[in-house]
């Protein structure tokens, strides 16, 4: 009697044997380049840092407030050299009305923190019929590159004039964010489609154009525009984007064609 498990194992081995074709070679090169790009990025901060820094700031702030030191710190930060007065006794200071408490505390070191944890969200897969699953295609480096990163040095150096590229990056990043929010934040496929179209019109060759194009195709699937969806998915299935979403596109096209 033949061993079915053995036969199936052999079948799986053969079906998944490494192959070498133009498509796989291109996919291999793309993955290699992606790995190198990711390794060149500065290390992202850990999630614990994401929470620990604001928590530490709150703890220190509340301790300082409770001990009565915060008003003095606030004064010291808010007054310029000429305005600063010689230190006064704590008793005298308490008599004075407390200054507007927290607003002037320089928030730069704390607020800067969330910028980097977004740097490298791992890419996940999109479930074609459950497209609400958030595909983390949020722009990693564009977020880091936003000029806010340079804010801490602004008081020591003249602020650099925004370059045209940077301005466009800002705009395309904003469009991408809006599209992402509409797509994954429950904005509905029609709204998401409009936003993806806007992003692709702004940055047709942008860094996130492939993700945007794929998500746009998913919107078309959701809207029942199967013909347009197939047209949008065809470049992916044909390997125009290498191996990116190629198998999903093929499977989706096949499924859509069967539904027609």
């Amino acid at each position: 009697m033949k061993d079915l498990l053995q036969e199936a194992t052999r079948a799986l081995r053969e079906e998944t044997a490494p192959e070498s074709s133009a498509t796989t070679r291109r996919r291999d090169r793309q993955t290699r380049a992606r790995i190198q790009d990711d390794l060149r990025l500065p290390p992202s901060r850990t999630r614990s840092g994401f929470f620990a820094v604001p928590l530490a700031a709150i703890l220190i702030g509340s301790t300082a407030w409770a001990s009565g030191a915060l008003p003095r710190i606030v004064d010291a930060w808010t007054k310029t050299g000429d305005e600063r007065q010689p230190p006064v006794s704590p008793a005298k200071r308490r008599v004075a009305p407390p200054p507007a408490p927290v607003a002037p505390v320089p928030p730069v070191p704390v607020r800067e923190a969330p910028a980097q944890p977004e740097a490298q969200p791992p890419e996940e897969v999109v479930e074609p019929d459950a497209v609400a699953v958030p595909t983390p295609v949020a722009p990693p480096t564009e977020v880091v590159a936003v000029p806010t990163a340079k804010a801490p040095t602004a008081h020591t150096r003249p602020a650099p004039r925004p370059q045209p590229d940077a301005v466009q990056n800002d705009r395309s990043t904003a469009l991408y964010r809006a599209a992402h929010q509409a797509h994954f934040g429950g904005g509905g496929p029609a709204a998401a489609l409009r936003h993806w179209n806007a992003y692709l019109a702004e940055a047709p060759g942008g860094r996130f154009a492939p993700e945007a194009a794929f998500n746009r195709a998913i919107c078309l699937v959701r809207l029942g525009q199967h013909q347009a969806a197939i047209a949008a998915l065809t470049p992916f299935s044909a390997g125009s984007f290498g191996g990116y979403r190629q198998s999903e596109a093929k499977q989706l096209i096949s499924a859509l064609q069967k539904k027609r």
Partner: peptide, 25 residues
């Protein structure tokens, strides 16, 4: 070594895209 890693990932996961993500990781 990528071919060996990819082959293992494909066999373990049964999905080419997931295998590609695993190779990347």
């Amino acid at each position: 070594h990528h071919q060996a890693v990819r082959a293992f990932a494909t066999r373990l996961l049964g999905d080419a895209s997931a295998a590609e993500d695993m190779v990347h990781e």
